[in-house]
Nucleic acid binder design. Sequence first.
DNA 1: TGAAGATCACGGCATTGAGTGTTATGTCGC
DNA 2: GCGACATAACACTCAATGCCGTGATCTTCA
Lengths: 263, 263
Amino acid sequence: MDGTGTRAGRRGPAGRQEEIAEHVLTHGSATAAELAERFQVSLMTIHRDLDELEHQGIVRKYHGGVTAQPSGVFESNVAFRMKAMQFEKDAIAAKAAEMIEPGMAVMLDDSTTTLALARRLAGITPLTVVTNFMESLNLLSQVRDVRLMALGGDYDPLHNSFLGVSCIEAIDSLQVDLCFVSTSAVSGGFAYHQEQHIVSVKRAMLARAARNVLLLDHTKLSRTALHRVAPLSAFHRVIVDAGASAEALREFDEHKIAYEVAV
Amino acid sequence: MDGTGTRAGRRGPAGRQEEIAEHVLTHGSATAAELAERFQVSLMTIHRDLDELEHQGIVRKYHGGVTAQPSGVFESNVAFRMKAMQFEKDAIAAKAAEMIEPGMAVMLDDSTTTLALARRLAGITPLTVVTNFMESLNLLSQVRDVRLMALGGDYDPLHNSFLGVSCIEAIDSLQVDLCFVSTSAVSGGFAYHQEQHIVSVKRAMLARAARNVLLLDHTKLSRTALHRVAPLSAFHRVIVDAGASAEALREFDEHKIAYEVAV
DNA sequence: TGAAGATCACGGCATTGAGTGTTATGTCGC
DNA sequence: GCGACATAACACTCAATGCCGTGATCTTCA
């Protein structure tokens, strides 16, 4: 039994790094020596962990220690998002799938919610699917009778997707029947996201579809992020999970937004 | 020194399976016991090898032995050669990697040879890599300090890559230092490929690089395919493996092509 | 039905690669 | 320029994995 207190590093370095991140995030900052003592590993290992966390955009290193990254970049981490709200996302995806009919062309953004939707598309073939999300590309490339189209661009490890000017140009030369996107926050009749380059891509997508659908788990409601993506009126429908508060739904009514609750 | 005669199974079970296939293909048939004796391994191992070869469509098993697959062998054999030539492709990739220096921008086409090259790029960072090949995208997305750029387009399950107009447009807006491609046949100073839509993409790639490099294992030499891709003069260098015949190399000399043999 | 051949199930063996520490070298800040 | 901190290079450990053989069980064919 070691004296490190919390659950031990049960799954290799990843587990320790997660705990380091948690420690730095709560305390605001730390020194390498302090962390080495706390986790009973050498300074070198701590530095390697911090390099990894810095590359993931979770902490910032400086000569003498590390600090937490100021904004909520942490929430963008794809591995982080992947685990959360799996059940709710699946319910939302089921509801969204009802809108799709064989033969349609649909576009999916780089969110874990639309990935849940992608998993269901094998049952609605034939279909044309357009996306910039690596996970969805890998998934759908294995599916017969899905005409898959990739949006290229600069690879973003944080989101595991392709972004940038090149991606937007590719979107601009397309036109689809349905576009499904998710955003990290919604309130006051607007959808928000914390990163500018993601916002640009989402906007381009919304402009190239006959109908747009916004997929939201309830943790996104009544919150804001730095950048406005679009007014909710840009969406022909909003789908939320059953965890949405009555207050949040009332807000949709006030703005005359067509929404649906997924059970 | 064993008595098996030919080059020993230097690269694991794959090498032995290749020799087994060769033996069965030339003799028409064989028994498991005979092969076990010939390669000095147990019956069980021979059966596992034969299961693998049968799965690849190269031989047919029956109670008491195996026979060579009667027809349609050629196509399956190509798939087989894909894997079998792995050793040579790796040598070619090693030679190609020497041309790359940190900081460069390189483009890779959708061939298994350039995939072998992609595996080596992690050691030459930082690097910008552009490709339309799903395998390479998945591989390189895991690599630190590689700025990865995807070429989008219509997904082709046969090649596991993205093609079409959309892909070519994406290529046209780029410019890289080095472009590595492979073609399915070379002879008379020209490179050939059997599929038109692949040819279009390769041509677009060649037009957007300061220097082009052609990667060829020796089975591609002195052959042709339906469509001309480009004259060999379009390439600043050709890299072949050590299996290339003296005659094929002389042909390069005649056309004044700068080539290099990978050991 | 009997016997040869094929498969299954388990365990040993060697190899690989990730993770880590130690020592040496480089770099920042006072 | 000096001390503290950070990085680079090399060697070691150890767990995971692929590969193979042995003996038991199942299947096929005469």
